[in-house]
Nucleic acid binder design. Structure first.
Lengths: 183, 183
DNA sequence: GAAGGCCCGCGGCAATTTGCCGCACCCGGC
DNA sequence: GCCGGGTGCGGCAAATTGCCGCGGGCCTTC
């Protein structure tokens, strides 16, 4: 990439607590002509964004001990034009709905590659020739979605969620630790 | 319900191609004080909405041979105030994102009960500190409902259902042998 | 009418998951 | 400080699932 390209490179803020993943994605995006800045938590992300509001942002939903959701609002407060992509390895309909309503541009489940990230960030709204897929959810997937929904209803309180679901707290913990299955 | 209540009843348009499900939900919503009109496809829904734009709408994503997604835009064109809930037994993150971006108020995966539908329709953007009705279904109960629905979709074919649900035929048999749990 | 192809029901057994203990820790109120 | 409630996690017995196999029924096709 030349110095000219650098000068014109659109800024992109990448927030993820997984250093390895973050590094790989940052490098891939940099190679594609973006000026990437990285942060591992909400505080660091806000510091970077306050100093220089990015044009694009890629946020991990599940950071070390906090949620990336509030960042959506805060980034949009700094610059309403920011295009935000929510990214997570623990995707669910419940959190997707929440993210989009908060103003995220798109929402993707990990794993993703840099091209998918960029496609999601640039996608113009509206052209919704969506799949409307064929097969119903697997029981496992359905359970995951339901758990996420109830968990959101209970503000992330695991004990309360376990009670509401009539399952053991320990079991719920274990289920949450696992990644959602596809399908 | 008195005549006064009827006069004040908020209008709700319910669109689903499954007559049984539609009937059950319509009755349940009617009992809760809504003036429910029903439609089985997009054309019928539009006809009803054009004549009398509803305050609320509950749309099935997967209608017989069409998608319910375009209806979101069309209903909002008729009346931007309409609060729309997308409902589907074939939930996916992708369609959820699309529905919300198109302007839907919320998105839920079937099976749901009437209270959850209303809670979703009334939930305000900020957050859900609203007095939510009854407790959510237990995972066990949810699983049972889902299995029954998919089983019906497959004309009672256990092998096909097991494949669709990505579970073992033997396991499905055992689950079916047990009584439905309540909760 | 024999051969496949699909389906159902069920026994058995190993692997995985649950239920249910416990413990250590953090936090917010009293 | 002390208490109640939430979180994370190890361990272990009990229950459930996954995955075999078998026999049998009901079609369709050679």
């Amino acid at each position: 990439m030349s110095a000219n390209d650098l000068a014109a490179a659109p800024s992109l803020l990448l927030v993820d607590d997984d250093a390895v993943f973050r590094g790989v994605l940052a490098r891939a995006l940099g190679r594609r002509g973006y000026a990437v800045s990285e942060a591992a938590d909400v505080a660091a992300a806000l510091a970077l964004a306050a100093a220089n509001p990015p044009e694009y942002a890629v946020l991990d939903l599940k950071l070390e001990h906090e949620s990336g959701l509030p960042l959506i609002r805060q980034l949009l407060d700094l610059d309403p034009e920011t295009r935000i992509l929510m990214l997570t390895g623990y995707a669910s309909v419940a959190t997707a709905v929440e993210a989009i309503k908060l103003g995220a541009t798109h929402y993707l489940a990990k794993p993703v590659d840099a091209d998918q990230v960029l496609a999601a960030l640039h996608r113009t709204e509206g052209d919704a020739q969506v799949p409307v897929g064929g097969d119903p959810l697997s029981v496992e997937r359905l359970e995951w979605e339901h758990i996420q929904r109830v968990l959101a209803d209970n503000d992330g309180n695991i004990s309360a969620t376990a009670r509401a679901l009539k399952m053991h707290r320990r079991t719920l913990q274990r289920k949450l630790a696992k990644r959602p299955v596809r399908g």
